[in-house]
Amino acid sequence: MNDNGRQITLFTNLQMWYHKHIIHYMIFFILTGLPLVSPWFHWIAYAVGVPVAAFSGAADITSVGLQICRAAHRITAVLWIVTSIPIVFAMLPKIGRWDMTPRRREGQGWVEYIKEGLIDTKRVYIDWQYPKYMGKYNLLQIAAAWAVIGICLLMLASGAVLWFRLWFSEGLVSVMRVAHLAGFMAMVVFLIFHVYFAIHPVNRAGYEAMFRTGKDSEAHARKKHPGLFL
């Protein structure tokens, strides 16, 4: 490979740190949330409840476990918000450089742009070739990113309403409850795709950047993310 040895930074240290935390949070959210979604996952609550019930002498182990799950779920949310604060302050001012907005070329119409973007994406994931126009993220990744930001905000908002449900009207609580569940389902679907593609060889460099170096070689980036250099 023709490598001039230069590296470009794809993710700052802060972003890498934050992403790792999000993974932890997501695991906690899912583990503590699943028992509330369905009794199929009560074994999680039971496992958590056994040691606590042994000390507190509570009557029903699953019930104790569920309470712990609910508490842990909320604590996780608080931690997530707390750790998000520096991120928000650090990243929001630089929103222009996220490279996460659709960027049409001069004179290009939306329809053409989208078609072009989809074809470009296909080139990567179906044809297993390098893309022609893709910047840091392809069109589907951009869409998914905004979707997941939206889902996260929805989960936080609906979660807050559910946590403090006595402050809100029953109608709002009912809507938020449904939204929280729907958001969860959407999040699981997103995560399935996200994790799959994250560990997929097609994204090897991205994986390295996200978890190890934060960087990619410029030579590789020119091939994989030509849009960055246009």
Binding site: L181, A182, M185, V189
Partner: peptide
């Protein structure tokens, strides 16, 4: 609906 739909989607 969401549980079934969600399961289907997953």
């Amino acid at each position: 609906v969401i549980k079934i739909g969600g399961a289907a989607a997953i």
